[in-house]
Simulated scan of single mutants.
Amino acid sequence: MATLMYARERASWILNHAGPYGFQRTRGQQLLARIDERQRTDAGVAYNPHVQGIAERLFLRDTKSRAAVLEMVVVIGAALIFPVAWPGGKLLYSWLTRRVEAPEFTLHTIPITALCWIGTVLMWLSALLITPSGTLVGVLLVPWVWVQGAGIFLMAGMYGILEGWLVVPGSTDWYPMPPPPLPSSPSLAKEDTDSPSPTLPNERPQPPLRSPRRPTPRPWE
């Protein structure tokens, strides 16, 4: 289950930046539906029988428009280039989201910049260290392994963008630490429970509250 941290802000960002990609509209609508269900559960309200309208998934829609063809090309291209890095990046993204939630709270948001730069550096190192000469294993398998390793971080950063974490301040930092707790300050409204409240000179202290007494029954009752 996806996290609901900053869910409403993220859902608004996803829907406002969906563009021609229908899978992003589906993602934003699903997130809004999970927000509504969580609020109903917390408030003790019965399950909503009127399900919100959610667009169909990518492979259930017809590809007659140019926008549908474009998103199909993007998804199939990413699946062909990163067949191992895609699920690995999603697992890394899920692990990072657990750092944002309780009880860890070791991250304030997804470090999108750090993930993308790590993937870029690994891609750059693969271009420098791998030579196209040699056996078939050295020409094809080694570059493929390097690309998948770098793609794990790239896909995790891409999931951070697709899930709307850019709306959260700190997502472009290298390591978005949680904000420090607010300093404790004295409050005039805070009651001092150690010392009793003062009484005025001519004021009598109120007797303690007691349970109501029933009248004494008559002998004939």
Rank of each mutant, 00 (worst) to 15 (best):
L70H: 11
R8Y: 00
E9L: 07
G19R: 03
P196H: 01
E56T: 11
L92Q: 04
I54P: 04
L128K: 12
W13E: 00
W13Q: 03
W144K: 09
D192W: 02
L107F: 03
R27Y: 15
L125I: 15
R38Q: 10
V145M: 15
G134Q: 06
V74R: 06
A67R: 10
V100Q: 02
F59E: 11
P132S: 04
P180Y: 07
V137G: 08
I152A: 05
Y159E: 09
V139R: 15
P205F: 07
A189G: 11
W165Q: 03
R218F: 12
T109K: 00
E163M: 04
Y21T: 00
V51M: 08
R27T: 09
M72F: 13
L188S: 11
G151I: 02
Y159M: 12
M177D: 08
L80T: 15
V45G: 00
D192K: 10
A127R: 07
V145N: 05
A189I: 08
I161C: 12
L92V: 09
L141V: 15
H108Q: 09
L107W: 01
L70A: 13
P132W: 04
Y175A: 06
W95L: 11
T120L: 14
T63K: 13
V74H: 13
I110C: 02
V75Y: 13
Q52T: 14
F23H: 12
L128I: 07
G22S: 04
A7G: 07
A79H: 13
L80F: 15
L60I: 05
P87G: 04
L166Q: 06
E163A: 06
H108V: 00
A79Y: 15
L140M: 14
M123K: 07
A189D: 11
R27P: 01
R27V: 05
Q29S: 08
